[in-house]
Write a protein that binds this DNA or RNA. Structure first.
Lengths: 189, 189
DNA sequence: AAATCAAAGTGACAATTGTCCTTTAACAGG
DNA sequence: CCTGTTAAAGGACAATTGTCACTTTGATTT
């Protein structure tokens, strides 16, 4: 369990055993069953979660059309939360639910900041991680702006071959901003 | 000049005069005329730039279609570079050119990291800035996934009323992932 | 094995957006 | 004042994608 988190942090900032133990002591484990919600709209979001096991989806429920737009998946070695609500202490505008049974490690904003202040390595880890996240999001945005439905799907399969098998197409369509039917036709013609 | 940068950093991390002077001494001023390029595809990207004055666009030139896709504008108080190339020391995959005469402050990756190590406040500033950038990019992505051309344009005007007047519509269309003609029809019907 | 349910495929049609092309307007430089 | 350049508007048509309704498939439960 904790090994995954350790390797994840050490990919940026190598740690001593003591340092890691100290960091790890601030995380709280949480297990959730398939179909349950980690975060629901209007919740206050106390934690940011590291995914140890399972698969989740973060989505916006459009109250007008009743449709859901998935903007992120979370699997092993990824982080997931409503960042905006988490950082600003406001209510969630999104939902996060489990597509599989999940095992997570949560940390509060206060502890996150405390660790950053106490350990430069952790602050550095947060900084690098945020920058990596930014660049990968930017790549996704570029494809969303310029690519056709087909481009987007092919790129997704190339980038996440495992995920594209693990997740129902309906959800992938939503993630790509395309209707389920259109996606279906892309690989049957 | 330097006051803008100071206020920008201090919005996250208040500094003493000495600290700011030290930070500022690592930046190099650069002035560019309208229509010139700050970064061209295949350049090595030594600097990350803070915009003191002017307006720039970052875009991808699609070599197949010959079309350009703008994925970011840069104006006063924003940062601009090819982040991927800057962080990894690789060649630029994008272009950045000036829509107006520009005045910039550039910092190298080595100096950026050095400042982060020497001053926790600066590392913290980088971390917070990256997280803010991430959340704002995510909001943009959400609109790109779910919004119609009209939604996107209206949202853009709401969020950047000044920019929408300052920048030619052709560029705004490209930023929104919409053809110039489609955008033109949105506010004439 | 039968019943139930969720996911995926498909056909027909509508709506949105892109592409190509022509025209108009604004404006800078000689 | 003219001329060349750039931005913008708009018409006509094509391509892409969405929507709705229905069928098929496959998994799960009883």
């Amino acid at each position: 369990m904790s090994q995954l988190l350790r390797r994840h942090i050490e990919a940026v900032s190598p740690l001593t055993d003591e340092e890691f133990e100290y960091i790890f002591s601030h995380f709280k484990s949480r297990k959730l069953k398939k179909h349950t919600y980690l975060i629901q709209q209007d919740d206050y979001v106390k934690y940011e979660y590291f995914v140890v096991n399972g698969c989740l989806r973060a989505f916006i429920g459009d109250s007008n059309t009743g449709k859901e737009i998935i903007y992120q998946f979370g699997i092993e070695d990824w982080w997931i939360t409503d960042r905006d609500a988490f950082f600003h202490g406001t209510q969630a505008t999104i939902n996060v639910s489990c597509l599989e049974d999940c095992e997570l490690l949560g940390i509060t904003l206060a502890d996150r900041q405390k660790l950053g202040k106490e350990l430069w390595k952790y602050e550095h880890f947060l900084q690098v991680k945020a920058n990596l996240g930014y660049t990968s999001l930017l790549k996704r945005l570029q494809i969303m702006i310029s690519g056709s439905a087909k481009d987007r799907y092919e790129q997704f399969v190339r980038q996440y071959p495992q995920l594209s098998k693990r997740i129902p197409k309906t959800y992938i369509a939503s993630y790509l901003g395309v209707s389920r039917e259109t996606l279906s036709r892309l690989y049957n013609s």
